[in-house]
């Protein structure tokens, strides 16, 4: 059913989405925490920057990322100095662009979960001799778990479904940047609708199951936090 190129694309897509999701959970958590707690005037601007990928066409984001990662761009100069070379048209370039592109999908659920906690659990923990770090790791993180699970699922799924940014940054290099969505595009260009059908159906099925999982999980955790039945 799947050609070798298809399997390569599927494997690459999974590898990309996993890497991006892990990085996003690490980067997104402090951003979400800051946005959830701060009273600073910067909250608005920073929140808007984080949310930009929600509204920007992927091509715009991809275009700027391409410039930034290019030989004269800020990121490009940095990576060259570090001896990594240039990122465009490489797996790690794709990872970097995807992290930016999927950031709001991870930050916002975590931020909402942390905001919903309010100050009280932190205060309670403080009266139980827990210092700031313990309060964060032993109270805030476990209590925000539903937000983290939603964030991870959405971040993963959104990275799997990305196309425009990949095309701008990654191009179409087998095993390096040719993900499933690009592979489907190739099939359509080449009029191989049968193969395009197989991969597209796979994506539809995957997306449906993911969303089903998210909604099911949200309903379950809402019930968990509700009043005693």
């Amino acid at each position: 059913m799947f050609t070798e190129a298809d399997l390569d694309a599927i494997w690459l897509t999974l590898r990309l989405a996993t890497t991006v999701t892990l990085l996003l959970l690490i980067i997104g958590t402090p951003i979400a925490w800051w946005l959830a707690r701060t009273d600073s005037w910067l909250k608005g601007p920073i929140g808007a920057v984080v949310a930009l990928p929600l509204v920007l066409p992927p091509t715009v984001l991809g275009f700027y990322m391409l410039i930034a990662m290019g030989p004269n761009g800020v990121i490009g100069q940095l990576t060259q100095q570090l001896g990594i070379g240039l990122l465009p048209f490489s797996f790690w370039g794709l990872v970097l662009a995807s992290v930016v592109y999927s950031l709001p999908f991870v930050v916002q659920p975590i931020q909402n979960a942390m905001q919903a906690l309010g100050d009280r659990p932190m205060e309670v923990a403080a009266t139980l001799r827990a210092g700031p770090w313990q309060r964060f790791f032993c109270v805030v993180l476990p209590l925000s778990k539903p937000g983290f699970i939603t964030a991870a699922i959405l971040g993963f799924a959104h990275t799997v479904g990305e196309f425009g940014v990949v095309l701008m940054i990654g191009g179409n290099i087998p095993q390096e940047t040719r993900v499933v969505s690009v592979q489907i595009y190739d099939y359509v260009e080449a009029m191989e609708y049968g193969q395009a059908h197989v991969l597209s159906a796979l994506m539809v099925g995957f997306s449906f199951i993911v969303l089903l999982g998210v909604y099911g999980f949200q309903r379950q955790s809402a019930g968990m936090l509700g009043v005693k039945s």
Binding site: R120, P121, E123, V124, A125, A126, T127, L128, R129, A130, G131, R135, C138, V139, P142, L143, K145, M224, L225
Partner: peptide
């Protein structure tokens, strides 16, 4: 002195138990 360094016990008005821990887990936290 920040709260977590004051040797006090505090009982809040409404339920203040950590929802992710059992009653025993809450006691163990202390």
């Amino acid at each position: 002195l920040p709260t977590h360094q004051r040797p006090l016990g505090y009982v809040f008005q409404e339920s203040s138990l950590f929802d992710h821990l059992t009653a025993m887990g809450n006691l163990k936290f202390a």
